[in-house]
Structure formats: structure tokens, C-alpha cells
Amino acid sequence: MLPEVTATRYVTPLREGGSLPGIVEADDLGTYVMKFTGAGQGRKTLVAEVICGTLAQRLGLRVPDLVRMQLDPVIGKAEPDEEVQELLKASGGLNLGMDFLPGALGFDPLAYEVGPREAGEVVWFDALVNNVDRSWRNPNMLVWHGDLWLIDHGATMIWHHNWPTAAASAAKPYDASDHALAPFGPDLASAAERLAPLVTEDLLARCAADVPDEWLEGEPGFDSTDAVRGAYTEVLAARARTIHERVTLGEPTRDRPSQAPGWLTGRLAPRREAGEVK
């Protein structure tokens, strides 16, 4: 189970995040990026963050540590932004915290070189979880103390938004042509050789076990939270076996419609029109 802390001070919102995460301090004296259950895309985003984040860590990839974070909305009373106030009011109780990396810089492919081995492992992992949000448009990677760190996995495992089609999703290919690390010659064969044997049902079950029951309860088509966890394990285990054979690395496209889910594109559209994101 993930460690649990309690938020003690709301510091500031992070405007670049589509779900409006915030920086908070907690009773363990740590500083975290909090992702809220009351955000527009709902609890499944947090489920994806937990499963993918803990899986990446167990595979040896760098992801900031995750915690369960209790929130009393009263800590944000001094926040003047009404949107933030409403988000806090809607998110009382258990939320997700990600360790804040002070001084980290957003990944810039012109300033940071990534070797083929590391690039291959990140692309392989993203193919496994079908991450549609690590493109050159929005890398969702940080450079901290000279190392590459992966963040923001809420737009992964799109199949869990429609469980009846999830089994078929295991066989779908992954187009990495626009992946932020595609220009670094990712060595997918080497990545698959090292990582695929590690993605066992036992490992996946341990990742799914880190998801709080309350984020899985009431899922249509399932009679228990353990059954939901089993569904995540089944799809990812099946996908891990051969996904490296179905990754496409072609020329990047700069004008095609986004493949991100509707809740994400909907949040980004007004900001894109205002020139805040590209």
C-alpha cells in the first residue's frame, strides 16, 4: 500500500496541468504535487497514475514517489481562484500526491541527450500502457539532477474507460512516431528483452493492489474491487508479451488531430487557442 499523508497547506496551483493539480505541503514535512479526485476526468485518472507510476518504478524507470493524500478542503480557503476553490471542495478525502522535484526542468530534446537504451525502455513502457500523452507536443518528462523522470500518466490505459472492449485493446499497435524520445533511436528490442519478462501477473497484481478500494468501487460490470484489479492485470500482462512487435516509429506529424482522450483535449483547447500550449 502507498504511504498516506495529510495535506497541511495548499501552496499554489500548477496551471500547465490540464487537471489543475496543485503544490501542497503535508504532515510528513514533504512537498507534493496533488492530483484531485474532484478534477473533471475523475478517479480513473488517479487509478492510471498509481498503476502506471508504480509499474514504471518497479521496472527501474524514474517516477516521483506516490502517496495517498488526505485533504480537508479548508486548507485552500485563502486561494482567490474560484476554480481552485471548487476543485478543493469537490476533492475532500483521499487524493493522490506525487513527490515534488524542486528545481526540475521540463524535458527539452535540444538540451538533454537520451541514449537509445533509455529511450527504448521509455517508449516500450509507454506502448505497454498506451500512453497517448508523451509526444513532442507535451513530453511529460522532467530532468532532475541530470536524470530523466517520467510524470503524468493519467492519459494511459484508455481501455479502462470502456471495459467491454479492453481485451481487444491488448492487441492494438502503438504509434510512437510523435513520441518525444523517437528522435533518439529507441532500442525497442533491447527494452523488450529486459522489461517484458519482468511484467508478470504477480508484479501487475502488486501494482493494482496499491490503488485504494474507493477509487475502484462501483465500476460497472464488476462485482468487486479485486475483480477490477484483475482486469487491469489481465490486459497489461497480455499486452506486454508482444507489444514491441507492434510499435511504429515513422516520421512525426505536425498537423494531425490529437489522439488524446476527449477529457484531455477539451481541457487543453481553450488554452491552445490562447497560445498557452502548442
Score class of each variant (00 low, 15 high):
residue 152 D to L: 01
residue 179 H to P: 12
residue 195 L to W: 10
residue 208 A to L: 01
residue 183 P to F: 08
residue 151 I to F: 00
residue 216 L to H: 09
residue 190 S to H: 10
residue 143 V to M: 08
residue 150 L to N: 01
residue 198 L to I: 05
residue 137 R to M: 12
residue 178 D to M: 06
residue 160 H to G: 03
residue 198 L to H: 10
residue 133 D to M: 06
residue 203 L to S: 07
residue 148 L to M: 02
residue 197 P to N: 09
residue 149 W to L: 01
residue 186 P to L: 04
residue 200 T to C: 11
residue 193 E to C: 07
residue 177 S to R: 06
residue 149 W to D: 00
residue 174 Y to P: 02
residue 169 S to A: 15
residue 131 N to S: 10
residue 141 M to P: 02
residue 146 G to P: 02
residue 143 V to Y: 09
residue 152 D to A: 03
residue 164 P to M: 06
residue 190 S to W: 02
residue 197 P to H: 10
residue 184 F to R: 02
residue 217 E to R: 14
residue 202 D to E: 15
residue 155 A to N: 14
residue 178 D to H: 11
residue 189 A to T: 06
residue 169 S to I: 00
residue 190 S to A: 14
residue 209 A to F: 05
residue 155 A to L: 15
residue 178 D to F: 01
residue 213 D to W: 09
residue 159 W to G: 14
residue 206 R to H: 14
residue 143 V to P: 12
residue 194 R to P: 00
residue 191 A to N: 04
residue 159 W to Q: 10
residue 134 R to Q: 09
residue 156 T to A: 12
residue 152 D to E: 04
residue 134 R to E: 07
residue 158 I to K: 04
residue 153 H to R: 02
residue 188 L to W: 04
residue 200 T to R: 08
residue 141 M to C: 15
residue 217 E to L: 11
residue 197 P to E: 13
residue 171 A to Y: 04
residue 215 W to M: 05
residue 193 E to S: 10
residue 173 P to T: 06
residue 184 F to Q: 04
residue 162 N to P: 03
residue 162 N to H: 15
residue 202 D to Q: 10
residue 209 A to C: 04
residue 136 W to A: 14
residue 155 A to T: 15
residue 182 A to W: 01
residue 131 N to T: 01
residue 190 S to Y: 06
residue 179 H to S: 12
residue 204 L to H: 03
residue 188 L to S: 05
residue 198 L to V: 12
residue 197 P to G: 10
residue 183 P to C: 10
residue 133 D to K: 07
residue 152 D to N: 10
residue 141 M to E: 02
residue 200 T to F: 06
residue 203 L to F: 05
residue 207 C to W: 03
residue 178 D to Y: 02
residue 146 G to W: 01
residue 186 P to M: 03
residue 197 P to V: 15
residue 174 Y to T: 03
residue 153 H to G: 02
residue 177 S to M: 11
residue 159 W to S: 13
residue 162 N to G: 12
residue 133 D to N: 13
residue 164 P to Y: 04
residue 188 L to Q: 08
residue 217 E to D: 12
residue 133 D to G: 09
residue 192 A to Q: 09
residue 199 V to W: 07
residue 164 P to T: 13
residue 168 A to Q: 12
residue 156 T to D: 04
residue 208 A to N: 00
residue 151 I to N: 03
residue 148 L to T: 00
residue 209 A to T: 03
residue 199 V to C: 02
residue 216 L to P: 04
residue 138 N to L: 12
residue 150 L to I: 02
residue 133 D to E: 08
residue 212 P to G: 03
residue 154 G to C: 08
residue 207 C to E: 08
residue 146 G to E: 01
residue 136 W to Q: 14
residue 140 N to K: 04
residue 152 D to K: 00
residue 210 D to V: 04
residue 211 V to H: 12
residue 147 D to A: 14
residue 151 I to R: 01
residue 142 L to Y: 07
residue 164 P to Q: 09
residue 201 E to I: 00
residue 135 S to L: 13
residue 196 A to K: 08
residue 171 A to L: 05
residue 207 C to G: 06
residue 167 A to S: 10
residue 178 D to G: 05
residue 217 E to P: 02
residue 189 A to L: 11
residue 168 A to K: 11
residue 209 A to W: 05
residue 135 S to H: 14
residue 215 W to F: 15
residue 162 N to R: 11
residue 187 D to L: 01
residue 148 L to C: 01
residue 193 E to L: 12
residue 200 T to Q: 08
residue 166 A to T: 08
residue 200 T to P: 11
residue 162 N to Q: 14
residue 161 H to T: 09
residue 217 E to C: 09
residue 191 A to T: 05
